[in-house]
Design a protein around this nucleic acid. Structure first.
Lengths: 339, 339
DNA sequence: CTGAAAGCGCTAACAG
DNA sequence: CTGTTAGCGCTTTCAG
């Protein structure tokens, strides 16, 4: 490995001078010296060791991101946003995944902080409030995204989940549905799940519809739970005429469940899903979903974090809320007169 | 920030001793001292600064991965494999994306090497042979994956693309097809594309079928190009009765193209796609695809790299080839007697 | 304008 | 068994 000393020796100058030109502090340096150094740098193909720089400067120029589950394709889009914003600002990116396990999340945070990453973007499990509080106390910069913490007021970028749910339920009601089921994974401390349920309820209430617990299905996070739940709401004596699925995987299972029962979508039951992808229009039937601006969320979260890191001082925490969008295709229609 | 000095002071010992217990070299240390130190560590909530460790040890315990396009959901599965293998071995992970641009790839490599990551996993654009050769010269550990380089013999983990295509075409031929089109993105230097085309040709040849260039469609990487190509092969005087799509996005566009022309799949035209996902069975129609073991590929590549980094010395380069699997659903059937 | 020297936080000989 | 010392590669006063 070639070091700054090698360059200094080759150019016949001190390493301070080399450091100077590398850092752009050569306003008052003789042209000759500058050129000597630049040539040596090029000849030796030298490039400064960032680890040493980091130790000295107390900044690694890298940020960390902690995902709840890296294998969820939803992150592909947001990672692109994060990545491009990082590159634009000269930051590196470390990624890790908690797999929804709070203790793994804790481990991730500790490791990342040890590695001295300058800041964190986290899609939290919602269970490490104490740790996060400690981070704010020691002024370690981080932002939440996709999920926010009710227990902890801090910078966050999310999409408005209450609104997403509310708009879809309203859409369904406007179509004439009054038995609308909702499927979700256990809410636990996860704000999107809580909020989507909340939006569902708000829409119902505002239309003076009763809230029927038998239409609210919490599915455990195992394969097939959504299929079962679908069958259940479809077998009710007053069965659901529309199903609102709040998760990509659940979307698929609702479709499967309906099919297994011999229900046609949308003729026999309407379904409205969550999250949009290029393949959604090609499903059978083309599915209505609420689309989230994934790329933008990644980009905004990164920008917010970088801004926070730069400004040093603690500012009033900022919550950026993005808008979801209803993608209307052909998986919903007015209910047929109930049998 | 609390440093090893603080701990030493608090425990009333030298920092070497602190370092020793932290690194597990306390076999010959008095119990008392050890406990004193451990207590101080705990009291101060001390955790060693990995940047300083890295500088000293010349190892960052992190690896870098360079993806061709991070927004491709195919990586979700492989990243999970990479991630879990990293965690299991105490490695951190830096990810970046070249967006298929060789000069960005170069930049990524340089940045990552500067940051002293211990090794690289790269899904190469195939255009930086000189740089990679330099890396092997300086014994910088890296492995290719998903795509291999013909110009450069080195450790690689791929799935057998020739086989994937060959099996697909054979399947189609066995069904009675003899006008089989293939759609691909520009092969350039990218081995999977080259190999899938190769497999296509081999299967045809082995069955004594002619290779008809008008059935081989190179689509540029813009939205809709697959739709056009589909229309073209379907409008030929001797039209295709089956279409083999070699890419996730292309799969979708083939389906769209066929639909636009009023062709039913599989009644009017069979289609066989590439890459499998949970949503593929729910497409209209449920699509046959060749599935790649994404998770396993990520895991194997990481394991191979770690092994390589550990063993220090250069070993004979190893190519791990995984097997693709044909997922048979209902997008293919025997061709109707041609009109 | 340039160089010498100190030091970031840690590890690892080397003494004792 | 434990402490002293010398760096890892770089930046940044501080002199000159």
């Amino acid at each position: 490995m070639v070091t700054i000393n090698d360059v200094a020796k080759k150019a016949g100058v001190s390493k301070s001078s080399v450091s100077r030109v590398l850092n752009g502090n050569f306003e008052h340096m003789s042209e000759e010296m500058k050129n000597k150094i630049l040539r040596a740098v090029k000849d030796l193909n030298y490039t400064p060791n960032s680890v040493a720089q980091s130790l000295k400067k107390k900044s690694t120029k890298t940020i960390g991101i902690i995902l709840s589950d890296i294998s969820n394709p939803f992150w592909s889009g947001v990672l692109k946003g994060v990545q491009s914003e990082c590159m634009r600002n000269g930051y590196g990116l470390m990624v890790s995944s908690s797999f929804e396990d709070p203790s793994v999340e804790e481990e991730n945070i500790l490791t990342l902080r040890n590695k001295q990453v300058d800041g964190l973007i986290v899609n939290t499990t919602g269970r490490n409030t104490d740790l996060f509080n400690e981070l704010v106390k020691e002024k370690y910069p981080f932002v939440f995204f996709d999920r926010f913490s009710n227990d902890l007021q801090t910078d966050t970028v999310i999409v408005n989940n209450i609104l997403g749910a509310k708009k879809t339920i309203q859409y369904l009601i406007d179509q004439g549905h009054d038995r609308i089921a909702i499927l979700l994974y256990p809410t636990e401390n996860k704000s999107p799940r809580i909020d989507r349920l909340e939006g569902y309820k708000q829409a119902l209430l505002e239309n003076n519809f009763p809230i029927d617990e038998s239409l609210i299905k919490i599915c455990d996070e195992t394969n097939g739970s959504g299929i079962e739940a679908t069958k259940e709401v479809l077998k009710l004596s007053q069965r659901a005429t529309a199903i609102f699925s709040t998760n990509t995987l659940l979307n698929l299972e609702v479709l499967m469940g309906a099919k297994k029962l011999g229900f046609k979508v949308p003729e026999d039951v309407s379904v409205f899903g969550y999250d949009d992808y290029p393949w959604v229009p090609l499903l059978d039937p083309p599915l209505n979903t609420v689309a989230q601006p994934a790329y933008e969320m990644g980009k905004k979260a990164t920008a917010l974090l970088i801004k926070k890191m730069k400004s040093g001082k603690v500012q009033k925490s900022k919550i950026i809320q993005l808008e979801p969008e209803l993608m209307i295709r052909s998986s919903c229609m007015a209910p047929k007169k109930v049998d």
